[in-house]
Write a protein that binds this DNA or RNA. Structure first.
Lengths: 244, 244
DNA sequence: GCCGATTTGTCCGTATGTATC
DNA sequence: CGATACATACGGACAAATCGG
């Protein structure tokens, strides 16, 4: 598996930071030093550093040197980040998990659905609802709509194991971009019926529109999380001049 | 005010997309075309395109051409994005706003505060709590801790207008990186006392650690939002190989 | 406070690799 | 298969900010 050069540099630096070889608050070598250390051009180094900046590992300032701002953190919640499936996220956070399909039917998008999901009126969709169990507790209600012309022959078995495996490996759909929104809403009777909400009367909701390689939106997702098992992380940087 | 080249290209393309000159789903010129259109190198074009990708305006795929995936959206909620102050966010979303300071005192960080905020035990901090009014409703409780050695002489007037103006313009503090977490928590008695929560018993919470140009964490913020006035947006892209 | 060395930021032109069409 | 388009990489040049003497 041939990896790109900047990827190798990125992985190596990330590792050195996570193992504290480059400790929190310390100053790491300059870009020019790195060109000799890794025997590559400055732009390759800069590409790797850009990835580290984006993920909150380092901080740079023109004229000054590069400092590490990464600190290890506790991971006892269900973190969301990047595009990943429920399975991947559960594994990464070290939880046992399960899925139960409570709905799987074909529908035609009406005006209400269209406005909510971004599909066109008249589009043929799969309407899938699944309950996600983590440590044997019903914590997430996943509501998905898939464009039937892209996601063909969706069955309960597929929905129960992993729709994303089916999409990527069987249908060869290439997931490219995902636009997500995070909100908090009052629990519906549906939420209360399916999930173990305890004292909470609200849920943390991640809704997203997913596009394939042809820029066609083929999915709308709504993940309704019990609040205490939800956490979204993000790193923002302020530039000389903020790009709007 | 000299702007960088890629910034000009970025702004122009963004504009063309927002005004639908480059419409949703349409294909825009190739990178090589753009080098002639804007009379600059391909790397400059790529830098601009990278910004558009990051913000969910376009989608690219190797070998294929670049497509617009931007659609105008409604804005009736309090959107969060990038690093910006309450004032900036309120203005951008077109709301009237106000601030009331309910606490401003100097404290010394103990173990509990240290664990929660990332400051060291013994650090001298300003503890500031403010209620944010939007359209005359008390919707956000802002809890801030500032490192007193950086943020000197904080007064009620400053806290009531804009601490960030004071930081950037008077103290010349340069805000660089902000690591944020979004969670949902049960409302405390404090929340219920200060905010108009209606039926909600939860809040959407954005907590963040803010670093200055010397990579020193000088602020910890916790914004406690009434759920219906909160929304966070994000665009994720899936690469050939996801970088961990 | 100034100056020069260092470091990051921007930009260019070119070359080669790889996926798409 | 060839042409096109994006991805990666190199090396050089100059600008802008920082920092130490």
């Amino acid at each position: 598996m041939p990896e790109s050069r900047f990827e190798n540099v990125y992985m190596d630096l990330k590792n050195k930071i996570e193992t504290q070889e480059y400790a929190f608050h310390s100053i790491i070598p300059s870009e020019n030093d790195f060109t000799e250390i890794y025997n590559c051009s400055r732009s390759t180094i800069r590409r790797a550093l850009a990835e580290l900046i984006k993920r909150g590992y380092i901080q740079v300032r023109q004229g000054s040197r590069v400092r590490v701002i990464y600190e290890p953190v506790e991971r006892n919640v269900f973190k969301i980040g990047g595009i990943e499936s429920f399975k991947e996220a559960a594994k990464r956070n070290g939880f046992s998990y399960g899925t139960k399909v409570v709905k799987l039917e074909k529908i035609i998008a009406d005006e209400e659905i269209s406005a909510r999901t971004g599909f066109k009126i008249g589009d043929e969709l799969y309407d899938v609802q699944r309950i996600r169990y983590i440590d044997s507790k019903a914590l997430i209600l996943d509501k998905n709509y898939f464009l039937a012309s892209v996601v063909k022959d969706l069955t309960e078995e597929i929905a129960e194991s992993s729709i994303y495996d089916y999409l990527e490996n069987t249908l060869k759909v290439k997931i490219m971009t995902s636009k997500r929104k995070m909100t908090t809403e009052l629990a519906t009777t549906e939420d209360k019926m399916y999930l173990e909400l305890g004292d909470y009367n609200c849920l943390a909701i991640v809704s997203g529109r997913v596009f394939n390689d042809a820029s066609l939106q083929f999915e709308y997702t709504e993940s309704r999380h019990r609040p205490d098992y939800f956490c979204f992380e993000d790193t923002a940087t302020r530039h000389r001049k903020r790009l709007p």
